[in-house]
Design a protein around this nucleic acid. Structure first.
Lengths: 143, 143
DNA sequence: TACGCTTGTATAGCAAGCTATGCAATATTA
DNA sequence: TAATATTGCATAGCTTGCTATACAAGCGTA
């Protein structure tokens, strides 16, 4: 009848996620971006001029979450939207120069947070840890 | 100059945490509770009649987050607050009978979610995974 | 072509997290 | 004891996430 949170994967995962987010937040705040925008920027740095739907397929959040985050990014001058000539419902999403310029610094932040966070594990443990997470996520997605 | 989210611990941790929360949410919704209340209930099931400060020391969220969640729990009839005779600033937090009755079902939910989520790992991998998380969290807390 | 289904996006409304700040009650100290 | 500092909690205001719903534009089909 006991339940120890220190042994509960769910509890630990939640706690760890908040610690990661806090660290990343700290590092990217000076760049003028926030954590929820990060995955979107990662995709747009690879390729912009895409529809919201295209973006959605590459990002693991719900459509409504993406739409809201995009609104804030537009407000903050990180993206611009143009008409999609092929479909009047959709728009094309473009990075601004400002957002483009942040890329390398942002990459560095993410790398540093990961490195710092995983420094308590040795090289092979780190690989295993990431591998475990990928497997767990994979298993949870096809339910 | 590349940054792959599939290899980024931070990205995976965040994604995994949302999947866990979604699963737990699903399971406990019929009980009339929500995920943010879970850690608080876990502590109160062990011992209630405590101050907010006592609770805070056992729960890994900020004070403001706890205060807000407690308000919603009071609204939802899960807790009651009484005056603390020893200190007029503080209050004592008590579970209602309704909340007390949910305990075993809630434990089951949490156990089931953990079991399901980790089923892709074998016994020893599960132990390692949890151990890794504890170490990472430990390392991130004393920064 | 007109009707209805599907698709792309937006909006409403909520929970849960954060930082920053306010404020009254207690404690400390000059 | 009066002034000041600390403590316990609440509130404001924001982001990020969710579900549910709305709605216009496009598509398919009778």
């Amino acid at each position: 009848m006991k339940f120890k949170k220190e042994n509960s994967a769910g509890y630990l995962v939640n706690h760890m996620a908040r610690l990661f987010a806090k660290e990343l937040q700290h590092c990217i705040a000076p760049l003028g971006i926030v954590v929820g925008q990060f995955p979107i920027l990662l995709e747009l740095w690879l390729k912009d001029g895409v529809s919201q739907k295209d973006l959605l397929s590459k990002i693991d959040v719900e459509q409504a979450t993406l739409a809201n985050t995009l609104s804030r990014m537009e407000r903050d001058g990180l993206i611009m939207r143009t008409k999609n000539p092929a479909d009047a419902r959709a728009q094309l999403i473009w990075l601004t120069d400002k957002a483009r310029a942040l890329r390398d610094d942002a990459y560095d932040c993410a790398q540093n947070v990961n490195t710092q966070a995983l420094r308590v594990l040795d090289e092979s443990e780190q690989v295993q840890f990431v591998e475990y997470m990928r497997r767990v996520i994979g298993g949870m997605q096809d339910c």
